[in-house]
Design a binder for these strands. Structure first.
Lengths: 139, 139
DNA sequence: GTATAAATTATAATCATTCTAAGCATTATG
DNA sequence: CATAATGCTTAGAATGATTATAATTTATAC
């Protein structure tokens, strides 16, 4: 069992039509879709697509570091094909998740380095997105 | 129906023994427990405790703004009785969630204010906590 | 082309969370 | 006090997201 895993560790990602369809949908997608969002769209074009395949592919890509799994939505996992450093705002009115570029200076407390090994960070902003803001005529 | 709701809107939180047991467990608790964690401990002392009561109480407290629901753990909701502004580190080795004080200067991009109404933010740090760091003899 | 590991599929299983309906406890009312 | 109203608790069923299973199919290397 372990041997099988080891043996195949270096095997490259098989490019099946289902995976290509998922990858194509994700490519450049900034909507932070859930597994269901992806399934709904991709299964329309790709008749026999199974939900399990969506999850399998998402997990494989996430483990390979080519996809980011977001925990910002308490109801379900969301996926972000943009793996560059950036943050997110979740609109508390419509639930939309919006990218926030990382031009934010985060100064970490000096004593943190003594206690923790820091690998990364992610900022969740809560607020009203621009379209909700317009709808409500805020400001 | 609406009238009934309205009538009771101002009703204060009833201090039942079950709720008191949950509150007591949460008081000063910095372990960021899940509903199950809470149920496990509290139901030991309080025989008849139901899982639903734990969830009901947690949701009521959260809605009342007296408890913070954390989404940092992708597997389950975690709860934090400390509602003051602070952030969290999740140890990628042991899964523990640790409080990070808010003495962090976060400078938001200037143009964000033009696009969004910002209500708050929360930083998720990823890293190795101090006990895992010691175990691994890091640094 | 063929073997073989890996991917897909449908379906069942699991796990966290919410819902439901019945009974219980507390408080307000007469 | 009695009684009604309200809200709380409970067990268990229901839901929804995600993962596991097992049989079948497919991609890739030889």
């Amino acid at each position: 069992m372990k041997q099988i895993q080891k043996k195949n560790e270096g095997t490259r990602f098989k490019r099946t039509p289902q995976r290509l369809a998922i990858l194509e949908y994700l490519e450049g997608n900034t909507s932070h879709p859930s597994a269901e969002d992806i399934f709904r769209v991709v299964s329309k074009r790709y008749q026999s697509m199974s939900f399990a395949t969506v999850y399998n592919t998402l997990n494989t890509l996430t483990r390979a570091g080519e996809l980011r799994e977001l925990t910002i939505d308490p109801e379900r996992k969301r996926y972000d094909p943009d793996i560059s450093r950036h943050h997110h705002l979740i609109c508390v009115l419509c639930g939309k998740i919006v990218d926030i570029p990382e031009k934010i200076g985060v100064e970490l407390p000096k004593d943190m380095a003594e206690h923790f090994v820091l690998l990364g960070h992610h900022i969740e902003f809560y607020g009203h997105c621009s379209s909700c803001r317009k709808k409500n005529k805020e400001k």
